[in-house]
Write a protein that binds this DNA or RNA. Structure first.
Lengths: 198, 198
DNA sequence: GTCTATACATGGATAGAC
DNA sequence: GTCTATCCATGTATAGAC
């Protein structure tokens, strides 16, 4: 139960869990099918039976990541808070998700920031665009209400997402000395000159 | 001459150029020795003669990257400017280097941000620490001169480097619609609430 | 649905001639 | 120093029995 990334306990979820663990350590290309099935405790053909091939596993994991992102975005948009608080909630949700499934996030994050490295093709930029669009939307709502000073919405969004990406990156580098307050501190630092003081 | 990453034109530099091109497209693990020697126009044993093996090529490239970083840092520290201007110069130097050798930087950048992916071990975090230390140093100089408001030096440095990393990342994603002014704009945005207005 | 055993391709590295 | 030819390990994927 404890190390489970996904719900049920059939061969599918055992394979997905094993794949996430290994992909997040060594990457897709450097992980062999043999290792995956060994860690999952099944034999090779089981993998080819449930997922079409190694690439099928990869796609299953990324589809799951998409759903997570959508859910985070929905939660943030639905919250009845101010724009600044919405940004804080976004940061918090992302960090919570990261704490709960660190290797899953390490993997996704490295895919988005890294090179193809022999991975199957997948529209990874979508994750990024989705986040930028969300923050731009939040900025514009806040701007209308006089919560923020004038700035280019795209630049504002890039700043906010860039800072958060960097924090995630730092946490990926050394999860041991994780400073769970850093994202919030850096967000405040970045917002210092952008908020309207009234 | 035009696509050269390194000085002379012997087999060494042809191999290094070819390796950089391919590594930056597909990553280390996914690039085969066969491809490298084909692009370099030499045969396999030449690679094993000059560099001990594939890993030797990798190390040669990263050592070169280290020297570049040191040179940028020296230039920034030696400039007689204010702290804010030093940060701008840092951003400019990095961007210049990126414009001049895009695939070289794409590769280094993805190594730092990505996962091991079967790469040889190399102290990549050093690149990152070096930059953070530099910016913290600049901040403290500026703080003494009353140029900046009070902030945690480490957080300040994280913010500045994080923003720049993100800009590099955006440029790596789509070099075509490169917005060469973005780094400076985002730097200003981030510094808005941190500078002393006198 | 799940296993054992195996086919088949590719990649890193080297032997040995020139 | 550079080549051709080759060795050998590893990896993906499947055939065929249960």
């Amino acid at each position: 139960m404890e190390q489970d990334h996904f719900s049920n306990n059939g061969p599918q979820s055992k394979l997905i869990d094993a794949a996430i663990t290994l992909f997040s350590e060594k990457g897709y290309a450097a992980t062999s099918v043999r290792e995956i099935v060994e860690l999952a405790g099944v034999s090779k053909p089981v993998l080819y039976y449930y997922f079409k091939n190694k690439e099928g596993l990869f796609n299953a994991i990324l589809d799951e990541a998409s759903e997570w992102q959508e859910q985070i975005i929905r939660n943030v948009l639905d919250s009845p808070q101010s724009a600044t608080e919405k940004l804080l909630i976004l940061y918090t949700h992302i960090d919570d998700a990261f704490q709960e499934h660190p290797d899953f996030f390490r993997f996704i994050h490295s895919l988005i920031l890294g090179l193809p490295q022999g991975n199957p093709v997948y529209d990874l930029e979508r994750f990024h665009r989705r986040m930028i669009d969300l923050v731009r939307e939040i900025y514009q709502q806040g701007r209308v209400k006089g919560e923020f000073l004038e700035a280019d919405p795209e630049d504002f969004a890039s700043l906010i997402i860039g800072v958060n990406d960097f924090c995630l990156h730092l946490e990926c580098l050394n999860p041991e000395k994780g400073d769970s307050e850093r994202p919030k501190r850096l967000l405040n630092l970045a917002l210092k000159g952008l908020k309207n003081k009234d």
